[in-house]
Structures are given as structure tokens and as C-alpha cells.
Design a protein around this nucleic acid. Structure first.
Lengths: 235, 235
DNA sequence: AAGTGGTCTAGACCACCGT
DNA sequence: CGGTGGTCTAGACCACTTC
């Protein structure tokens, strides 16, 4: 990571998360940060705008740079790539692999992934267990052309860590569709809830930085245990 | 709006929405935009980054600026201030005011709004009807100190348009918590669904640009009709 | 090699907050 | 009024895509 503004943003994010500014609830001024990191003002402003987007701070013209309140509960964060591991860091997380194989896209999957029917895909179904209780079911399809190899060991840990660090994929953007349904019988059993109970659903279409779709997934969450937090900035 | 990059972003957003670039699926290069709007490169880049953030386009280094696919269905957009009116623009939207009054914050509301119990609040409950069918129930509390006046006429249209254009409030950021519950009996009746059916819930804490909380709201959506779309950018 | 976006600098001036 | 963010410019150099 040779990029200055990203390094500064990561450094500040780390400091915020470890409570460095909790007393004053305020970050140093832009001028102080310029001196501290020995970079130009625009570079500081670019680093800070990353923290704003991630929901850590807000800027007030003429006044300063303030910490946003920490969210007390454990929420799922839509914007993070690392998924549950980072969001629910205080909890114990286990993963059961229910299924992992290569298959060929049918009409429906081909439409979701914008590829020809018959395209080879990795199919992965996992049960996520948080604090010893079933939390969610995650069903993912990856284009094999882009993710040429996957095994149970990788799928038991963070798939995205593997995609980014080992396969060196550049992940660009995603569409997430959030909805709510009655849970089907087999999912109800896995999640230890009654059939016809509600379930929170996230369908996720993920693209590389160059715009190519490489994953489509559907996650089914236990309706009492999962809440999603989204921090929005206007302006 | 004397700010150049915002004007350029709005102009480009309008052009994108009206299909100007649909043939090529690409925007002009930064250099062309610089000439077209007669501004510096950084100003163009700032305008473009707003479009990226709103999910309209993605940038590919060395290649260009591309349109993201339009989402086919009618989704609720978490990032917009205007709410349903803009998101579901193709549909007919009606609003029934169920309740509108001033009350004093109890312990629970005081905690949500970070104010003293007894603080005066506007309470507003509305039923939103889309294409002649009940779509959602919205319950809002506004600090009267910040929103000193509200009436049925304003509440029948866009409250946020009134807050921004008439009261000149500067809205800064919001925390949105999305979850899923079994619907209660009275809400079920309003939404024309069976009791115990699922409901999609958004709880919303909204702050002014200076960080003051001024609204807390809870929206209960018809689980078959409401889907939320969130477009995420990494990097 | 040419085209196009990504990062970074240095400096100017404006707008808003607080004392 | 001084302090602090917000906007804007002009120019340099780097990194990636495309041909």
C-alpha cells in the first residue's frame, strides 16, 4: 500500500477504533494532520473523506472533525468486504460447509451473473454460527473463470481474504438487495426457527474493478439475531 | 447552488437518468468534461466521485468512466433524502396522515434522540399507499426545537422538502438499522396482511450537519412489496 | 506509444464557527 | 476577529488499458 491517503486513512481508522480520540471526540485539525503526516492538505482531505464515507467521523465547516457515536450493538455492515468476521468481532464465529462443488449455470444464474448458460461456477453453501447459535445461511456462486480454485479450507475462513490477498482480485462495487420473506422449511431447520417465520435476505451481485460480475450470493439471516447498520452521509 | 462540482454532478446525473449515454454506456473523458464545463480537473473528479458514490458510474483506470447497469425493479434507496417520491417515481403515491401532534419524550424516545425526557417532539404517523395498495407505515419524531412547525398539508407531501427548502435545515448524516420482525396486529390491518407475517423494518436516526440528532423514525414495510437496493463501492 | 484515470503538491480565496 | 473547513486552480508525474 504505497498510497499515502489510504495509509493515513487506515492509520486514523485504527486509532479511532482503539479509542485514541474518545476523550475529546474530535480529531486533530487538518493543519495538524498535514504536519503529522507531512503531506499536502488535499491528501489529508482525501484520507478524511474515506473516514467520512465509512461512517467514523463527520466534518463541520469552521469547527472541526468529530467522531460519530459508536453503534452499541453488533450489526452487519453492508459496506465491509470482510463480512461477519469483522462486523461481529466480539463474538465467536464458526462456519459449516454444507456444499461446495462446480456446476454449470442454468438460465436463472446466467441472468444474475450476466453470462451464458453452461458457464462453470463454484457453488458454495455455508451455515454461519455465531456464539454457538445458527445465524445465517450463505449461498454463493463464483465464476470459475475468475475464481479458478476454491476448497473447504478456504471456505471455512474468509473467502474474500483469499480473493484479495491470494488471487489478487481487484473488487470494485456491488449491488445489495435487502428484503424479507417467510423462511422455507429446510432453512428454518438449519436456523432453528419455526417454518413461516420471517427471514432477512440479502442478495448480492459483486463486480471487479473493471465492471465484470464475478459473484452472486444470497444470505438468509435469523430474523431475531441479525440487524444491518447503514451509515449515510448527505452532501 | 453556487458550487461548481455539485452543479456538474447534478447535470451529469440528470443526463444519465434521461438516457443520454445509454448508447455508449460511457461518459466523456475527464479532459472532455474539463473543456465542456470549463473547470479544472480536480473539480471534474470531485463531481464524478459524487456520481460514483451514488452508484451511477464506475471508474476504470486507464480506460474510462462507465455507466453501471440500471436496476430494473423499483427499489427503496437508502441514500436518498427525498424518500419514496423519488425512488418509486413511476408509481402513484398517496399518503394518509394517521396522527400528527406534539408530545413530550418518554425515557425511550429521549434515549433515541439523545435529549432530556419531557423534550417536546412532533409525532407523525403516516400510511404510504403505492399504486392504490398499502406499502408502508412511517412513524416519525422530530425535535420541536429544530422543527418548530408541522401541519397535515406539509406531512401529506415531502416533509424533507419542507425541512430543506423552507426551514433551511442542513442535513448531515443518518444511521439506518434494517431488520425484520413479525408484524403486530394493528400494522397488519393497515398493510392488509395477515398478523404474524414478516415485515421489513428501517429505524432511522437523522442528524443535522453540525451533529445534532433531530429525528428518529421507524418505517414498517409490506414484506412482499418493499425491497431495498444499496450500491456499494470499495476502494 | 498514446490515451485515460490515479495520486500528490502548493497556493489562493471563500464560508462558517466560536470567542 | 482568528481558527477551521470548503472550493477551486494549475501543473507534475505515475499506473493501467488499449492498440
Amino acid at each position: 500500500m504505497a498510497v499515502k491517503y489510504k495509509e493515513i486513512a487506515e492509520r486514523l481508522e485504527h486509532d479511532i477504533r482503539s479509542g485514541t480520540f474518545n476523550q475529546v471526540k474530535k480529531l486533530p485539525t487538518e493543519e495538524e494532520l498535514m504536519k503529522q503526516f507531512n503531506v499536502s492538505r488535499n491528501t489529508i482531505r482525501k484520507a478524511v473523506s474515506q473516514l467520512v464515507h465509512r461512517g467514523y467521523v463527520y466534518q463541520v465547516q469552521g469547527s472541526g472533525l468529530f467522531l460519530r457515536e459508536e453503534s452499541s450493538a453488533d450489526y452487519i455492515n453492508l459496506g465491509s468486504l470482510r463480512g461477519l468476521t469483522q462486523d461481529l468481532s466480539a463474538k465467536s464465529i464458526e462456519t459449516n460447509i454444507m456444499d461446495l462443488c462446480v456446476l454449470e449455470a442454468d438460465e436463472g444464474l446466467a441472468a444474475q451473473l450476466r453470462c451464458a448458460p453452461g458457464t462453470k461456477l463454484y457453488y458454495l453453501k455455508r451455515l454461519r454460527i455465531v456464539d454457538k447459535e445458527p445465524f445465517s445461511i450463505e449461498i454463493s456462486y463464483f465464476k470459475k473463470e475468475i475464481v479458478p480454485y476454491l476448497n473447504e479450507e478456504i471456505a471455512s475462513n474468509s473467502v474474500y481474504e483469499y480473493l484479495i490477498e491470494d488471487l489478487q482480485l481487484h473488487i470494485g462495487f456491488a449491488d445489495k438487495v435487502i428484503s424479507c420473506e417467510k423462511v422455507d422449511a429446510s432453512s428454518a431447520e438449519l436456523l432453528h426457527i419455526e417454518p413461516d417465520n420471517p427471514a432477512l435476505i440479502i442478495e448480492n451481485t459483486v463486480c471487479l474493478a473493471n465492471g465484470t460480475i464475478f459473484e452472486w450470493s444470497k444470505s438468509i439471516f435469523h430474523f431475531r439475531k441479525a440487524k444491518i447498520l447503514n451509515r449515510i452521509n448527505f452532501k
